[in-house]
């Protein structure tokens, strides 16, 4: 489902070196579980985001494996250390091969 997928990410714009920053991410996605049936009794095929990663200047913060039990419009909150100014890269991997990306810059003083 490449259409209608929209990521949202919340990262502070500034921080001090070595600070802990809280990051929140949300992406619009149906997360079709593969457990449901349509009105004719046919299984609706699974279609989920199966992996989410957050990196900062090329180094990993968190790498999440998602199963169908993650709710529609997957949400994550976690904490990162920012050693220097740079860019967060967020990536969501869809079952259908699509990849959704978002980046956020942070100024570290």
């Amino acid at each position: 489902m490449a259409s209608g997928v929209k990521p949202r990410v919340k990262v502070p714009k500034t921080a001090s070196a070595g600070d802990t920053v809280t990051i929140k991410t949300l992406i619009s996605h149906k997360m079709e579980s593969g457990q449901r049936k349509d009105d004719d009794g046919n299984i609706i095929p699974r279609s989920i985001i199966n992996r989410f990663t957050a990196d900062f200047n090329g180094q990993n913060v968190i790498d999440v494996t998602l199963e169908p039990a993650i709710s529609t419009n997957p949400y994550f909150q976690f904490e990162a250390i920012v050693p220097e100014s740079g860019e967060f890269q967020f990536t969501w991997y869809d079952d259908d091969g699509d990849v959704y990306e978002e980046t956020k810059k942070i100024e570290v003083s």
Binding site: G4, K6, R8, K10, K24, L26, I27, S28, N73, Y75
Partner: peptide, 15 residues
């Protein structure tokens, strides 16, 4: 407003 999942649809409304 970030935790509120409705806001992704408000974003879509803006688009």
């Amino acid at each position: 407003d970030f935790d509120n999942p409705a806001m992704i649809f408000v974003d879509q409304g803006m688009d």
